[in-house]
Amino acid sequence: MTRNLIIGAALSSLVVLAAVMSFVWTPFDYAALNIPDKLQPPNPTHWFGTDHFGRDMFSMIMVGSRTSIAVALVAVGIGMAAGVPLGLTAATRKGSWLDELIMRGNDLVFAFPSLVIAILITAVFGAGAINAIIAIGIFNIPVFARITRGAALSLWEREFILAARVSGKGAARISVEHILPNVANLLIVQGTIQFSLGILAEAGLSYVGLGAQPPTPSWGRMLADAQTMVSFAPHLALIPGSAIIVTVLGLNLMGDGLRDWLDPRLRVARS
Protein backbone atom coordinates (compact mmCIF):
# COMPACT_ATOMS: atom_id res chain seq x y z
CA MET A 1 0.00 0.00 0.00
CA THR A 2 1.30 3.41 -0.95
CA ARG A 3 1.10 6.56 1.10
CA ASN A 4 -1.23 8.14 -1.51
CA LEU A 5 -3.64 5.29 -1.15
CA ILE A 6 -3.73 5.56 2.63
CA ILE A 7 -4.24 9.34 2.72
CA GLY A 8 -6.73 9.19 -0.14
CA ALA A 9 -8.74 6.38 1.39
CA ALA A 10 -8.76 8.14 4.76
CA LEU A 11 -10.08 11.42 3.31
CA SER A 12 -12.64 9.65 1.14
CA SER A 13 -13.94 7.47 3.94
CA LEU A 14 -14.28 10.57 6.12
CA VAL A 15 -16.70 12.00 3.57
CA VAL A 16 -18.53 8.70 3.10
CA LEU A 17 -18.78 8.35 6.87
CA ALA A 18 -20.31 11.83 7.13
CA ALA A 19 -22.83 10.94 4.45
CA VAL A 20 -23.81 7.64 6.10
CA MET A 21 -23.95 9.25 9.56
CA SER A 22 -26.25 12.01 8.27
CA PHE A 23 -29.03 9.46 7.79
CA VAL A 24 -29.20 8.75 11.50
CA TRP A 25 -27.70 11.82 13.15
CA THR A 26 -26.82 15.44 12.45
CA PRO A 27 -26.06 17.95 15.22
CA PHE A 28 -29.06 20.06 14.16
CA ASP A 29 -31.93 19.75 11.71
CA TYR A 30 -30.27 20.78 8.45
CA ALA A 31 -33.43 22.48 7.18
CA ALA A 32 -34.42 24.29 10.37
CA LEU A 33 -34.20 28.05 9.90
CA ASN A 34 -33.19 30.09 12.89
CA ILE A 35 -32.85 33.63 11.57
CA PRO A 36 -31.81 35.34 14.86
CA ASP A 37 -28.72 33.06 14.92
CA LYS A 38 -27.65 33.79 11.35
CA LEU A 39 -24.07 34.19 10.10
CA GLN A 40 -22.34 32.92 13.23
CA PRO A 41 -18.69 32.02 12.72
CA PRO A 42 -17.63 28.51 13.77
CA ASN A 43 -18.13 28.07 17.53
CA PRO A 44 -18.60 25.25 20.07
CA THR A 45 -22.36 24.98 19.40
CA HIS A 46 -22.25 25.31 15.63
CA TRP A 47 -18.93 23.69 14.70
CA PHE A 48 -18.92 25.11 11.18
CA GLY A 49 -20.98 28.21 12.07
CA THR A 50 -24.39 29.10 10.65
CA ASP A 51 -25.48 30.34 7.23
CA HIS A 52 -27.57 33.40 6.28
CA PHE A 53 -30.76 31.68 7.46
CA GLY A 54 -29.19 30.53 10.74
CA ARG A 55 -29.01 26.90 9.58
CA ASP A 56 -26.24 24.76 11.05
CA MET A 57 -23.47 24.52 8.45
CA PHE A 58 -22.05 21.27 9.84
CA SER A 59 -25.39 19.52 9.40
CA MET A 60 -25.75 21.00 5.93
CA ILE A 61 -22.27 19.81 4.91
CA MET A 62 -23.08 16.32 6.19
CA VAL A 63 -26.35 16.09 4.29
CA GLY A 64 -24.77 17.86 1.30
CA SER A 65 -22.15 15.11 1.05
CA ARG A 66 -25.05 12.72 0.50
CA THR A 67 -26.18 14.74 -2.53
CA SER A 68 -22.66 14.91 -3.93
CA ILE A 69 -21.94 11.21 -3.44
CA ALA A 70 -25.31 10.06 -4.75
CA VAL A 71 -25.09 12.17 -7.90
CA ALA A 72 -21.47 11.21 -8.63
CA LEU A 73 -22.01 7.53 -7.85
CA VAL A 74 -25.02 7.11 -10.10
CA ALA A 75 -23.37 9.15 -12.83
CA VAL A 76 -20.30 6.89 -12.76
CA GLY A 77 -22.66 3.89 -12.70
CA ILE A 78 -24.36 5.12 -15.87
CA GLY A 79 -20.97 5.66 -17.50
CA MET A 80 -19.77 2.17 -16.61
CA ALA A 81 -23.01 0.37 -17.40
CA ALA A 82 -23.12 1.81 -20.90
CA GLY A 83 -19.46 2.47 -21.61
CA VAL A 84 -17.94 -0.89 -20.65
CA PRO A 85 -20.20 -3.07 -22.88
CA LEU A 86 -19.67 -0.62 -25.73
CA GLY A 87 -15.89 -0.81 -25.31
CA LEU A 88 -15.90 -4.62 -25.07
CA THR A 89 -18.09 -4.91 -28.18
CA ALA A 90 -15.91 -2.53 -30.16
CA ALA A 91 -12.81 -4.51 -29.20
CA THR A 92 -14.25 -7.85 -30.43
CA ARG A 93 -14.79 -6.41 -33.89
CA LYS A 94 -11.72 -4.28 -34.26
CA GLY A 95 -11.72 -2.21 -37.44
CA SER A 96 -15.25 -3.21 -38.41
CA TRP A 97 -18.03 -0.73 -39.13
CA LEU A 98 -19.45 -1.42 -35.66
CA ASP A 99 -16.15 -0.51 -34.01
CA GLU A 100 -16.02 2.67 -36.08
CA LEU A 101 -19.62 3.56 -35.24
CA ILE A 102 -19.15 3.09 -31.49
CA MET A 103 -15.83 4.84 -31.23
CA ARG A 104 -16.69 7.78 -33.51
CA GLY A 105 -19.95 8.17 -31.58
CA ASN A 106 -17.87 8.34 -28.43
CA ASP A 107 -15.56 10.89 -30.02
CA LEU A 108 -18.60 12.98 -30.79
CA VAL A 109 -19.80 12.99 -27.18
CA PHE A 110 -16.24 13.59 -26.02
CA ALA A 111 -15.88 16.60 -28.29
CA PHE A 112 -18.61 18.51 -26.46
CA PRO A 113 -17.64 20.61 -23.47
CA SER A 114 -19.31 18.46 -20.83
CA LEU A 115 -20.35 21.05 -18.26
CA VAL A 116 -21.87 23.29 -20.93
CA ILE A 117 -23.93 20.41 -22.28
CA ALA A 118 -24.94 19.44 -18.75
CA ILE A 119 -26.20 23.00 -18.30
CA LEU A 120 -28.09 22.68 -21.59
CA ILE A 121 -29.71 19.40 -20.55
CA THR A 122 -30.81 20.71 -17.17
CA ALA A 123 -31.98 23.98 -18.72
CA VAL A 124 -34.15 22.14 -21.22
CA PHE A 125 -35.48 19.34 -19.01
CA GLY A 126 -35.58 21.32 -15.79
CA ALA A 127 -33.19 21.74 -12.91
CA GLY A 128 -32.90 18.96 -10.37
CA ALA A 129 -30.69 16.21 -9.06
CA ILE A 130 -32.03 13.54 -11.46
CA ASN A 131 -31.34 15.56 -14.60
CA ALA A 132 -27.92 16.50 -13.23
CA ILE A 133 -27.13 12.81 -12.76
CA ILE A 134 -28.15 11.97 -16.33
CA ALA A 135 -26.23 14.91 -17.75
CA ILE A 136 -23.04 13.99 -15.91
CA GLY A 137 -23.55 10.28 -16.58
CA ILE A 138 -23.72 10.67 -20.35
CA PHE A 139 -20.27 12.19 -20.41
CA ASN A 140 -18.84 9.31 -18.46
CA ILE A 141 -19.82 6.83 -21.19
CA PRO A 142 -17.03 7.59 -23.70
CA VAL A 143 -14.41 7.62 -20.95
CA PHE A 144 -15.21 4.05 -19.95
CA ALA A 145 -15.80 2.88 -23.52
CA ARG A 146 -12.36 4.07 -24.62
CA ILE A 147 -10.44 2.72 -21.70
CA THR A 148 -12.18 -0.66 -21.96
CA ARG A 149 -11.59 -0.97 -25.70
CA GLY A 150 -7.95 0.03 -25.43
CA ALA A 151 -7.19 -2.51 -22.74
CA ALA A 152 -9.31 -5.22 -24.36
CA LEU A 153 -7.58 -4.85 -27.72
CA SER A 154 -4.19 -5.69 -26.26
CA LEU A 155 -5.69 -8.62 -24.34
CA TRP A 156 -7.19 -10.07 -27.51
CA GLU A 157 -3.63 -10.59 -28.79
CA ARG A 158 -2.62 -12.68 -25.75
CA GLU A 159 -2.17 -16.47 -25.77
CA PHE A 160 -4.78 -17.27 -23.11
CA ILE A 161 -7.46 -15.61 -25.22
CA LEU A 162 -6.25 -17.54 -28.23
CA ALA A 163 -6.60 -20.71 -26.15
CA ALA A 164 -10.13 -19.77 -25.19
CA ARG A 165 -11.00 -19.16 -28.83
CA VAL A 166 -9.53 -22.52 -29.82
CA SER A 167 -11.68 -24.18 -27.19
CA GLY A 168 -14.68 -22.81 -29.11
CA LYS A 169 -15.87 -19.98 -26.88
CA GLY A 170 -17.66 -17.11 -28.64
CA ALA A 171 -16.51 -13.50 -28.61
CA ALA A 172 -19.19 -12.40 -26.14
CA ARG A 173 -18.37 -15.15 -23.69
CA ILE A 174 -14.64 -14.48 -23.90
CA SER A 175 -15.29 -10.76 -23.33
CA VAL A 176 -17.22 -11.42 -20.15
CA GLU A 177 -15.22 -14.36 -18.77
CA HIS A 178 -11.66 -13.41 -19.68
CA ILE A 179 -11.41 -9.80 -20.83
CA LEU A 180 -13.60 -8.13 -18.24
CA PRO A 181 -11.82 -9.51 -15.15
CA ASN A 182 -8.54 -8.35 -16.61
CA VAL A 183 -9.68 -4.79 -17.24
CA ALA A 184 -11.49 -4.50 -13.91
CA ASN A 185 -8.48 -2.94 -12.16
CA LEU A 186 -8.29 -0.22 -14.73
CA LEU A 187 -11.99 0.43 -14.45
CA ILE A 188 -11.82 0.75 -10.68
CA VAL A 189 -9.02 3.28 -10.92
CA GLN A 190 -10.79 5.24 -13.66
CA GLY A 191 -14.05 4.99 -11.74
CA THR A 192 -12.44 6.67 -8.74
CA ILE A 193 -11.16 9.52 -10.88
CA GLN A 194 -14.51 9.92 -12.65
CA PHE A 195 -16.21 9.88 -9.26
CA SER A 196 -14.22 12.90 -8.17
CA LEU A 197 -14.95 14.66 -11.47
CA GLY A 198 -18.63 13.87 -10.94
CA ILE A 199 -18.55 15.57 -7.55
CA LEU A 200 -16.97 18.64 -9.14
CA ALA A 201 -19.56 18.63 -11.93
CA GLU A 202 -22.41 18.36 -9.44
CA ALA A 203 -20.98 21.25 -7.46
CA GLY A 204 -20.67 23.26 -10.68
CA LEU A 205 -24.26 22.59 -11.73
CA SER A 206 -25.59 23.38 -8.27
CA TYR A 207 -23.54 26.56 -8.25
CA VAL A 208 -25.39 27.82 -11.31
CA GLY A 209 -28.65 26.67 -9.74
CA LEU A 210 -29.23 23.60 -11.90
CA GLY A 211 -28.41 20.83 -9.44
CA ALA A 212 -30.34 19.67 -6.39
CA GLN A 213 -33.06 22.19 -5.54
CA PRO A 214 -33.60 23.80 -2.14
CA PRO A 215 -34.17 22.83 0.61
CA THR A 216 -31.93 19.81 -0.22
CA PRO A 217 -28.46 21.07 0.73
CA SER A 218 -25.76 20.92 -1.89
CA TRP A 219 -22.17 22.11 -1.63
CA GLY A 220 -22.29 23.96 -4.91
CA ARG A 221 -25.37 25.93 -3.97
CA MET A 222 -23.93 26.74 -0.56
CA LEU A 223 -21.01 28.31 -2.43
CA ALA A 224 -23.35 30.25 -4.69
CA ASP A 225 -25.38 31.53 -1.72
CA ALA A 226 -22.16 32.63 -0.02
CA GLN A 227 -21.08 34.71 -2.97
CA THR A 228 -22.25 38.15 -1.85
CA MET A 229 -21.34 37.49 1.79
CA VAL A 230 -17.73 36.36 1.45
CA SER A 231 -16.39 39.72 2.56
CA PHE A 232 -18.06 39.63 5.99
CA ALA A 233 -18.74 35.90 6.55
CA PRO A 234 -15.92 34.04 4.81
CA HIS A 235 -16.77 30.73 6.48
CA LEU A 236 -19.88 30.50 4.29
CA ALA A 237 -17.64 29.95 1.26
CA LEU A 238 -14.57 28.41 2.88
CA ILE A 239 -16.43 25.50 4.45
CA PRO A 240 -18.27 24.06 1.44
CA GLY A 241 -15.20 24.89 -0.67
CA SER A 242 -12.97 22.91 1.66
CA ALA A 243 -15.46 20.03 1.67
CA ILE A 244 -15.22 19.84 -2.12
CA ILE A 245 -11.41 20.06 -2.02
CA VAL A 246 -11.09 17.33 0.63
CA THR A 247 -13.39 15.00 -1.29
CA VAL A 248 -11.86 15.52 -4.70
CA LEU A 249 -8.30 15.40 -3.37
CA GLY A 250 -9.07 12.26 -1.42
CA LEU A 251 -10.58 10.48 -4.40
CA ASN A 252 -7.76 11.50 -6.72
CA LEU A 253 -5.09 10.34 -4.28
CA MET A 254 -6.99 7.12 -3.82
CA GLY A 255 -7.26 6.62 -7.57
CA ASP A 256 -3.53 7.20 -7.93
CA GLY A 257 -2.74 4.86 -5.08
CA LEU A 258 -5.07 2.18 -6.40
CA ARG A 259 -3.43 2.30 -9.79
CA ASP A 260 0.00 1.70 -8.29
CA TRP A 261 -1.31 -1.00 -6.03
CA LEU A 262 -3.43 -2.86 -8.55
CA ASP A 263 -1.10 -2.68 -11.55
CA PRO A 264 0.27 -6.24 -11.99
CA ARG A 265 3.54 -5.02 -13.48
CA LEU A 266 4.26 -2.74 -10.56
CA ARG A 267 3.22 -5.50 -8.17
CA VAL A 268 5.86 -7.78 -9.64
CA ALA A 269 8.43 -5.04 -9.29
CA ARG A 270 7.49 -4.59 -5.63
CA SER A 271 7.78 -8.26 -4.73
Binding site: A31, A32, L33, I35, H52, F53, P214, P215
Partner: peptide, 10 residues
Protein backbone atom coordinates in the same frame (compact mmCIF):
# COMPACT_ATOMS: atom_id res chain seq x y z
CA UNK B 1 -35.32 33.19 -3.99
CA UNK B 2 -34.30 33.72 -0.37
CA UNK B 3 -37.77 34.70 0.81
CA UNK B 4 -39.09 31.56 -0.87
CA UNK B 5 -36.78 29.26 1.07
CA UNK B 6 -37.96 30.84 4.30
CA UNK B 7 -41.65 30.72 3.31
CA UNK B 8 -41.30 27.05 2.32
CA UNK B 9 -39.78 26.24 5.71
CA UNK B 10 -42.52 28.16 7.55
Amino acid sequence: RRGGEIVAAQ
